[in-house]
Every structure is written in structure tokens, then in C-alpha cells.
Design a protein around this nucleic acid. Structure first.
Lengths: 359, 359
DNA sequence: TTGAAAGCGCTAACAC
DNA sequence: GTGTTAGCGCTTTCAA
């Protein structure tokens, strides 16, 4: 730390070879005679030599780094723990917790793991950015200079910015339809909701079907609504669509509202959090799930597993999504001129207590 | 992409200035006359110039990158979605979901956000690694060459490896006690559990107290057990400690077991998942929460908010943890010779329905 | 199998 | 204010 960090020159001197040989020991060990190699490695260990990624990147014209650009959370206030003095413990009345919206970051963790694993496996490091504060342009031009390729979560960047950047740097868009001529990997929202909804129709007790659409102009919500539409289309069911925020509160309100007029035989929600809200609303008025009414969600968040009854849902393969994204990136890195590709990943329906298997 | 990426030389030529001026426009814009600056920026835009981080790093002897090393998940099998053909949707009977353990990754997401925000704010990019596959040594020496400082989640690396690396590179250990002479930032597990337990004793209905300890040799579990001990010490309570895995299943089993003999007036669990299991076990035998028995967890996972009744718990400020870690790193970057520091972050008790406020 | 030498693109003195 | 220049530490021909 305080001492000068050793370089190839130091290692070369110590081992009595040229810097080219030191480099070879790392890049193509088999091209160096065993004895020489061992002498070099000994020097490396003794000196604690670590190759500089910057120098490598500059000489090799590649950074060996991939980037992941997540949606920002500009509203995240820094250091919420400030008000409490060290050693003290604050008590907070949080009984209304379920009503407050959670951040939609729920599965970025999984996504990150997928991207990270695949990157590392391919010999790339991973740089993660959520770019807030400064403008998207600045964030983008910052990482653009650091990486060999970039995975961008849909709607993090404007379509225009994406396709402009894609001209200079391999880019893949995650969980969104391709922004026009750009590689993308998405999840089969429509097919998943269609399959789930068909199952619902098959097992539901009598009564109307309440569909909780997500917010307007969410591509996910749209695709799911389309899938639901395909499932109920032609079926002889009394279907009611209601907008509902993608939150517990949103699902609760929409369901409670509906309950004032009718008793549903099924509530199909476009995401898990609103489904959990629906579950709550039904419980309040004493409707039994799943015997009197089945309930389903979408996403596969953890809370659904622990809900009571546990929530039937469609699980998005976020880890796989991340891995595929990297594969697509690597493909383009290898063959820049390939036509843009779009990949759609299959989903899984998780049948749990709120809408159990048919038998 | 196909065309050669422009460099400072191209920009300089295009703008009719020297490369030094181009560099200045980016590093100290105020040192360049406005007219010149605009000429340069025009060239930058026209050419789509993006500074190379490698060249910068090499010339400036700093990468402007911070590293975050998360515990590996070596067991994560790649691409679980393979068996399903595209366009098809698999149905999985997942009714026992709550019983299977979740990965303990629950709050890495938050941690990441904290680290990311703070890094970016300080002008650093963030490289994330979970280092599996190859040995920790290799992972470490790979990122060591890429970053100016490193945040390591506790128990990801051996103490020895940490302190060895700390000699060459600023390191901060997260959520663990300092491995000896290394900066660290942790959470007040003991104080949090102590405060929560005191509250429990204050509001609990009559009956013994069941304490669900976590697994052996988890430092977190130990610290929490100590805090609980301090709270009940001297109190006139019938206390029963039981080991329980940090899973729903573990909490369920231990509680159900206890219920065969006694009826607790309180179940204090050392983590949220086991508390949710306890909640389930109590419900099965018809014990009312919180009127007949109060229940508490620890961690603040999302599922606790949606549980019924919602779970009283202690929330770990993971985002703040990440931010503090970066601050510590920056501090050491600035003054390498400072004595090692240890920071302990306060926690918050979230009072929810399973063990409500006193009044 | 090894070495010499020419960059890679940028920063930071220093000179003008 | 702006230009010149000497590296930063590594990879990679090309010779030996």
C-alpha cells in the first residue's frame, strides 16, 4: 500500500527474464519453459505482483469488463440511519407496513447473480450501475468507456439512447422488447399469464373473474393482460377488469371495491403484491381461499411463499434472464455484424395453496 | 463498433487543438476558454468520443473503481429454465414452498444499492463479484488489479486472506467484526435484540418465553443470543432456548415441538424466516397472535410485512451499511496510515401486529 | 523459447 | 490558455 506496487518490470528483474516472458506466463503459460515459468511465478508471489487491469485494457484494446445498467432509484435518500444515535435503538410503529409500496427491485438481486455468474464464467468482470443523479447520458458515457459490452434493464434508458449507443458498443436489453435493432432477452409474460389463467378457469369455484391489471403503459402489464385475454376469450365467464397499482394497497383497494358489489370466484392479479392485497381484502370479508375463491399473482416474489394461503403465481426466471443476456452479449462481441436477435424465456407456473392443482 | 473508436487525437485534430486541451476539457473545464471548450465538445459529439477508462487508469494510476465481494453461491446451477421448451409453460406443484429454505441473499440487493450509490456519488464505478468457481485467491487477485478499494462481505474470505490483501489495497469488511487490523462496518445485532426482547417482556401475555436461536457458530446468531440474554437476565421469566435453523421449516419444527409440552407467551426468533415458521406452528394449534402469544423476528425481510399477522422485527440498515462501507474505504484511500476503524450501525425495531406497541 | 521495441490512449508536469 | 512531451504497465509482433 505504502510501497510502490510491483510491475512486470520488477517481476522480470527479480526472475531474471524479460517483461515479455512475464506477460507470457500469464497469457499463454504453455509457451514458456516450465523452469522459467516457475521462476517467474516465484517472483510474482514474492513481490505480491498483481497485473494492472488498466494497462492490460489499454494494451489489449479490451477491458474484459461487462456492464449492467439497472434502473435508478433517484429517490433513495442516503443514510436513513442518521437520526438514531449510535448504541440506541429506535422503535417504529410499522403496523401499516404492508400497505406501503415496496421498491420494484425485488428481483434485481437474482438478475444480478445471473449476469455476474455468466460474466465471470466467460472471463469478464462485471460493473454495475444504477445511474442516478447525473443524466443518463453521462452515466452511459462513463461506463461506455469502461466496458466491452452492456446489459440494460428495459426502460432504464430511452430507446433512442440505447440504439445510439448500440452503434459503438454491444448492448442487450433485458426484460423488454428490443428497442429497434438491438438485441434483447425477455420473459414470456403473455404465455405465462395465458397458461395460468386457463388453469384458473379450470379449477375456480363459481363466480365472476376479477382481473387486476397493472398500471397503464407498463409493457409487462400489457403483455400479461393480453395473455389473460387469450385465456378467457371464448370461455363462458363473467370477466371484470380493474386497474390496480402493482402494490399490496392497490390490490387491496381494487378487490375491496369489487367486493362491495360482487363475490368473485377468482382474482387474477397481474403481479404478486397486488395479489397479496387481494388475499387480504378477501380475508377481511370472510371469503375462503381457495374454496370460495382462487387467487393468483405473477412474479414469484418471496413473500408469496410465506403468505397464508401461499400464493399461486408465475415465476420469472430472472437468473436465467441474466445469464442469457450475457450469452447474447458475448455472441455479439464475437460477431458484431450478426442481425439483432430477440430471445424469449419460458416461465413456470408455481401452483400453491391459493389456487392449487386440479386433481 | 466496426469503425475505429475515436481517441483524444482524433478529437484534437477535429477541433484544431492539442490533446492536452481535450483532456482538460474533461478534467478541468474551467481551465479552458469557453470558445475552445465548445469547439472541443462539438468534436466530441460529432465523433462520438468516449474516454477510455483503461488509458485513464493507467495514466492516472487509479482505476476509479471500487469492488464489492459478495459471498459466492457456488451451488447455483446455471440456467434452470432449460427443461422447458420455448413457448411452453411448466406447471409446478409448489405447495410446500414455504418449507424450503431460501437463499440468504435477501438483503444483498439493498446492500448493493447502498454501495453503488455511495460509490457513484464519490466518482467511482462499482465492480461486483461473487467469486465462485475458481479459488478465492484467483478471484481476489483478479479484482485486486481492477479496483482502488474493496468491500468484502464477512465470511466471504478467510481472515488471513483479508488481512494479507489489506496490505496492498484498502479493504473494508461488512457485517462482521474486523478480521484483525482491518476496517469494518457492522450492525448492532446485540443491541437490537436486547431492545426488542425488553419490549417483548413488557407487552407479552403470561406464559414462558421461547427463544429460537439460530444455527451454531453464526456470528450474527451469537450476537443476537447475547442481546436476548441481557434482556431476560434478572427478569422473572420462564425462558426456554431452542436451536432452530434460520428457515421457515426450522422455526416451525422447533415451535411445534415446544407446543407439545407448553404454551408460550412469547416466541422470540433470531431471524425472520424462523419467526414466520413459528407463526405458522402457533396458528395450526389455534394460539392467537398477539393476544395469547407475541412473536418477533429479526432482519426485516419483505415477507414479514405481508405475513398475517405482520411480523414485528428488527430491521438491519443494509443500505446504510453499504454507504458507510464506501465512506470508510474512501477515508482510507485518502489517509492510508490511519489506524483501523470499526463502525457499528444502529438498528430499528419495527413494531407490527405480531408484537404491537405497548399502549 | 526468449528478448527488444513499438505502441495502446490518456494525464500531468513544464514550457510557451 | 494552450501545446509538448514523457511516461503509466502491459501486449504483441518480429527477430534472434
Amino acid at each position: 500500500m505504502s510501497v510502490k506496487t510491483p510491475t512486470v518490470y520488477d517481476v522480470a528483474a527479480q526472475a531474471g527474464v524479460s517483461i515479455a516472458t512475464v506477460s507470457r506466463v500469464f497469457r499463454q503459460p504453455e509457451a514458456v519453459r516450465e523452469a522459467t515459468r516457475e521462476r517467474v511465478m516465484a517472483a510474482v508471489r514474492e513481490l505480491g505482483y498483481v497485473p494492472s487491469a488498466s494497462a492490460r485494457g489499454l494494451a489489449g484494446r479490451r477491458t474484459s469488463v461487462l456492464g449492467l445498467l439497472l434502473p435508478g432509484h433517484d429517490d433513495l435518500e442516503p443514510g436513513r440511519s442518521a437520526p438514531v444515535r449510535s448504541g440506541e435503538v429506535a422503535f417504529i410503529d410499522d403496523r401499516a407496513a404492508a400497505l406501503t409500496p415496496t421498491s420494484p427491485n425485488l428481483y434485481f438481486d437474482e438478475l444480478l447473480r445471473g449476469v455476474e455468474v455468466a460474466s465471470w464464467r466467460a472471463g469478464y468482470a462485471l460493473t454495475v450501475t444504477a445511474g442516478r443523479g447525473m443524466s443518463r447520458e453521462m452515466v452511459l458515457s462513463d461506463i461506455a468507456g469502461r466496458v466491452d459490452g452492456l446489459a440494460v434493464v428495459a426502460r432504464t434508458l430511452s430507446d433512442d439512447l440505447v440504439s445510439r449507443t448500440a452503434r459503438r458498443l454491444p448492448i442487450v436489453v433485458l426484460a423488454g422488447t428490443g428497442a429497434g435493432g438491438v438485441d434483447h432477452v425477455e420473459v414470456d409474460n403473455r404465455g405465462g399469464m395465458r397458461a395460468l389463467s386457463r388453469h384458473v378457469l379450470q379449477v375456480k369455484p363459481p363466480g365472476p373473474v376479477l382481473y387486476l391489471e397493472g398500471p397503464r403503459q407498463s409493457p409487462d402489464a400489457e403483455a400479461r393482460a393480453a395473455g389473460f385475454g387469450e385465456a378467457v376469450d371464448g370461455a363462458d365467464e363473467d370477466v371484470h377488469r380493474r386497474p390496480a397499482e402493482f402494490t399490496h394497497e392497490g390490490g387491496y383497494a381494487a378487490t375491496a371495491d369489487f367486493l362491495r358489489v360482487r363475490r368473485p370466484g377468482a382474482v387474477v392479479a397481474a403481479n404478486d403484491q397486488s395479489a397479496l392485497g387481494a388475499l387480504d381484502a378477501l380475508r377481511r370479508v370472510g371469503v375462503r381461499v381457495p374454496t370460495q375463491c382462487v387467487v393468483t399473482g405473477f412474479d414469484g416474489i418471496d413473500a408469496g411463499r410465506y403468505a397464508n394461503p401461499s400464493l399461486t403465481t408465475v415465476r420469472q426466471p430472472m437468473t436465467a434472464l441474466g445469464e442469457r443476456a450475457v450469452e447474447v452479449l458475448l455472441r455479439r462481441l464475437g460477431e458484431p455484424e450478426l442481425p439483432p436477435c430477440g430471445l424469449q424465456l419460458p416461465v413456470e407456473v408455481l401452483l400453491r395453496d391459493s389456487c392449487p392443482p386440479a386433481d
